[in-house]
Simulated scan of single mutants.
Amino acid sequence: MPVSAPEPAALVPQGAAFFPVKTPGPTRRYAFVLVPGFTLLAFSSAVEPLRIANQLSQQPLYQWRLLSEGGVAVASSSGISVCTDGPLGPQPRDTRVFVCSGNPARAAAAPSVVALLQRHARFGGTVGGICTGAVALAEAGLLDQAPFTLHWENQPAFCEDFPELSPCATMFEIAPKVMTCGGGAASTDMMIALIEQDHGAEFAAMVSEMCLRKVMVGVDAGQRSALSVLIRSRNPGLIAMVARMKAHLEDPLPLAELARVSGYSRRHVERMFLSVLGETPGDYYRGLRLDHGRNLLSTTDMPLIEVALACGFSTVAHFSRSFRARFGMAPTKFSRAKARRPQA
């Protein structure tokens, strides 16, 4: 298969620490596709473990190249631009091709990026998504048979755009031909897991130590903190009710049903919410639904009526009044403010 541009040589920098790899095998290749607005933290967190692996072993265990549409430098979400090695084009079958994206998430679904992924997968190559890169994989039709994830902030919009697909809440997912992570520190965890597959647990643990990550996070770890931490309570009844609320944003449950789940009386539930969370159960529940609405307004182009219904409001008027009370502006003004923000 032809390659779009000559590959750069594998980087093997010098370092004080050393961990030999006796049977390294062939150099493993990665291609990172940078999409405008990609998250710099997630991208660098994926590349650095590969660099550390080469440095520790003093061998070219890994080689990577950066691609972009037109081969131009790409501005990250922080405004910092990163130069690339060449334009999008066919890659060798043994290259793992990862799409690095951020916000807006739909930027990952550019036709040229989707076409590259489809071609690479069709010829037996491995593909992946970092942060919101799963959007490109979904658009390419490559997520039907594999577990996958993307950043939790973008999962509600993803589920609206691809209702037939269900992202996992995990930090990363590694399937034989599809690999995804939520970005940030999850990029490092995913790469360390891949290094472990390639060169063993001891070497991967040393790479993790070099990243100052004393405990490697497993694939079962969730992206977000435990609910007990977020609501500052370990009361199992309260945790069960809040979890139930989060699972029913579109079809809000009555307080009687929530009280039944907790095993407490309605009056006790009201006192518990006021003492722990400082709000009535109804106000807290409404806040969760409105926060979900704000997320959808920020990350999708859904009509206002669809956003309202997705948050459990039967009318736009009711949703708008509640939204203004919580956020200080009407949802229509919030949407216009979002439209005026410059996109990377």
Rank of each mutant, 00 (worst) to 15 (best):
G263P: 08
T95M: 09
T300P: 05
I130A: 05
T39L: 00
V316N: 03
M216Y: 00
F172W: 10
Y284L: 11
L11Q: 08
P167N: 07
E173A: 13
A317N: 08
F319A: 12
A5Q: 10
H292C: 05
A138L: 10
A17M: 12
R321H: 13
T180W: 00
P111Q: 11
Y284W: 15
A204L: 06
A42L: 03
A226I: 01
P163V: 04
P281I: 10
V3P: 01
D301K: 13
L67S: 06
S208C: 07
A185C: 02
F319R: 07
M210I: 02
S320H: 06
F19G: 09
V33R: 05
N154S: 14
P331L: 04
G102I: 04
L88V: 06
R119K: 08
G222W: 03
L288C: 13
S81W: 01
K246D: 08
F98I: 12
S187L: 09
Y284E: 12
D85G: 06
A256V: 15
V21A: 03
F203G: 04
S208M: 05
A193T: 13
P8T: 06
R213D: 02
P111V: 13
T149I: 07
K333S: 15
N235V: 08
P13K: 07
R340I: 03
L67G: 02
A31F: 05
M329P: 00
R28T: 14
F123I: 15
E209D: 10
N103W: 11
L238G: 11
L116C: 04
P303I: 07
R28S: 12
F162G: 03
T280I: 04
R294F: 10
L255W: 01
A221K: 09
L274F: 02
L238D: 13
S228K: 09
F334S: 04
V72P: 00
Q145R: 15
P252D: 12
A240I: 04
G25I: 14
M171L: 15
D291I: 11
A259Y: 05
A157L: 09
Y264Q: 12
V72T: 14
L277E: 11
D251P: 00
V21Q: 03
R119Q: 15
P24H: 07
V219N: 03
C83A: 15
I130G: 06
P342K: 02
W64R: 03
P24C: 11
R294T: 06
